[in-house]
Design a protein around this nucleic acid. Structure first.
Lengths: 399, 399
DNA sequence: AGAGCTGCTGAATCAGTGG
DNA sequence: ACCACTGATTCAGCAGCTC
């Protein structure tokens, strides 16, 4: 078997190409396999425009058995070329990720984390039939339960403003200038991943000079990020058009010698706190009667976080405005609740303040600080106290 | 098979208890199964031969095989007792969720969403060897790809202050006063789930009066929330201590008894009004000219409740689609009429709203048909039997 | 220049009823 | 079973244009 050649794209089926590579020679595999979406007919948006769904031949399988066989084949081939200290990442959705996770566990891989890519700008559910599919799942695993592996704890902590990096990452989709286009101005690849996602993967699980292999290279995101961060890379791809585009893309990338100079774009919107959360968390049971400060109007809290009065129904703001005949109303300060103590009637904004305080106390704010709907909570991290001391080496090899 | 008895806890192994319940009798299953891969006698064993760790690979295979057999057994039992319009929720982590997801797909369940419970206050990773494990995964599925199911889209949207509910939910762990303690002040159950999580599950996928079954009841969170929200419930649990605690817990729960506080009005469930009824009632005389909001297209109202334009003839929807060259069109919101007042051009949907209001005032149809306590109808998408106010009956009562 | 508006798009398993 | 018809349904970000 010849020595490993890196920084190149191999054309062909990944199982066949992998068979030609030396065993135990790769530090990290990042795989974005076909998801087996099983889409039905066409889907229209409310404005009657058509959703450009994934209908490529490479995503069509005869059934779960077919997909499972495909999955086990490429996972086994990756297991062979991985060093014993190597790790493997796979990204997917509920269409395929359970099959992938089961297959890699059966093959002996040892799951270290499942990581959620929380999309800040997902496509909505146009028909109102399900929850907005707003995330994808990455599985990160070592070659076995006893295997050592690389995890750059300090780099991840630094990337998260001094707090441990969590298993949920909020990042936007790959859009705008980063999205590769073909000659006609159409998207070159239907599932191009954002570089910020790969930035985090590469920084977390590899060291400079390590070899990252991507068996489904596509538009070349993993190779581009690997090169930028001073890692070596290997891509495998079947489609000559994708290969040409990826080659040009990677060629244009400049390697940055000092990765600490690179900051991941911090576009991570934190989930808002709607009034429904106050109800859901039991701070205000359904059926509670709210009044305005003068006791002139009343409304009842419903289980879905809306209010209902004698004549109106809607959000705390809508009902507050409606009963007054006003064009607008801040429901948080308009509506009051009766307390047992000496305070008597207090605005429900008190509950929101309490919820925010809990978030600060419990470290809810950290990972992705962003202003709340009204009156941001910037700078609230001061109450969190001193951090633990640093851990040994930044790029530790762990057991 | 005896009829289903609800609002009670059955003691025993869930597969055996489920076998004694009638088929197709449950609306929703919520399951929080054990994921202890050590198989400490708690799980079903298809073969009693336990191999002591002579060979890691074999041991691992035996472990997963046993867990898979256990998973398939209880999932199949749940599939049988579920109504064809029912859905199933399972919660887990990367230790078991891939096995569960694969098993339920193999059994024919159709995944609707995987939902991420993003913990606002997770346990940190003290050794700094991995990402903070800050989430759990729920899988929500119907009995098959063609099955109808209940999803209270509007209630979820209201709970999120007007935005579609996403597949990632940020909620704190169950701590503080909500956490059940034993006599010694220790936590009663190791994995007690927060009520806020179940609140969202129940509100999203059931209607008042529906039956929710939990095959691994534990501390009784699902039963407590089901009772509070006016749903019926069935719990199965093996441990007598957990059962005793859950019984006491549920007994202390007060049901929100006002149905208007529990149900969110659903647009799709409103009585249908044929456009012909608007004409028939004289709200829009034959010959009236309608236009789109931009004044680009016009059409005339005919006595039979159809429209006629320069080139097209048909229903308000058909002509609206035809003039635009669109595949579909909601004629109620597309076509506008000129008013004499200050409002100018208004959509003809205003007439439909006026007609519906008249029907309410005259007792012809309910404004907000409350779901029957027995759960026979009212599912937003469950289609279990005829609805009130269908097109036919509305027309019949109108004239 | 900058604010504001329109239009487009993203791994999507996306309807319900009656004849 | 198929077929026809009604009519309900979207969030964030970016590019390009107008005022």
């Amino acid at each position: 078997m010849p020595p490993l050649k890196t920084d190149r794209i191999y054309q062909g089926d990944c199982v066949e190409v992998l068979a030609g590579l030396p065993a135990q020679s790769v530090d990290v595999v990042f795989a974005d396999p076909p998801y087996n979406l099983q889409l039905g007919g066409e889907l229209l948006r409310p404005n009657n425009s058509r959703v450009d769904g994934v209908d490529d031949a490479w995503d069509r399988f005869a059934g779960f058995a077919d997909y499972d066989a495909f999955t086990r084949a490429w996972l086994a081939a990756c297991h062979r070329v991985l060093k014993d200290t190597g790790t493997l990442w796979v990204i997917g959705t509920y269409h395929n990720i359970f099959r992938v996770g089961t297959a890699l566990q059966d093959l002996g891989f040892w799951v270290l984390n499942d990581v959620i890519w929380r999309k800040t700008n997902p496509m909505p559910n146009f028909r109102g039939t399900r929850f907005t599919n707003a995330h994808e799942t990455l599985v990160w695993c070592a070659k076995g339960p006893e295997a050592r592996y690389t995890f750059n704890y300090e780099a991840m902590k630094a990337l998260n403003e001094g707090l441990q990096m969590r298993s949920d990452w909020s990042l936007p989709l790959c859009t705008g200038g980063e999205r590769l286009k073909d000659d006609g101005g159409q998207k070159l690849h239907p599932t191009q991943k954002p570089e910020a996602l790969l930035h985090r993967v590469v920084l977390a699980s590899t060291n400079p000079g390590d070899v990252i292999l991507d068996p489904f290279l596509g538009s070349g995101t993993s190779a581009a990020v690997a090169k930028r961060l001073g890692r070596r890379w290997i891509g495998i791809e079947r489609d000559p058009d994708y290969i040409a585009a990826a080659r040009a893309r990677v060629a244009a990338v400049q390697t940055v010698d000092d990765p600490t100079l690179l900051a991941t774009p911090r576009k991570r919107a934190e989930p808002r706190i709607p009034f429904g959360a106050v109800v859901e968390r039991g701070l205000l049971p359904p059926g509670t009667v709210l009044t305005d400060s003068g006791g002139r109007w009343t409304a009842k809290v419903r289980a879905d976080g809306t209010l209902i009065s004698a004549e109106h129904r809607g959000s705390i703001h809508q009902v507050g405005a409606a009963v007054q005949g006003a064009p607008a109303c801040n429901g948080w300060t308009f509506w009051h609740m009766q307390t047992e103590g000496t305070e008597g009637l207090v605005p429900i904004d008190l509950l929101r303040q309490r919820l925010r305080q809990e978030m600060v106390d419990q470290g809810e704010a950290p990972a992705d600080p962003a202003p709340l709907p009204t009156g941001g909570r910037g700078g609230s991290r001061s109450g969190r106290g001193p951090r633990r001391g640093t851990r040994g080496s930044a790029a530790a090899t762990l057991h």
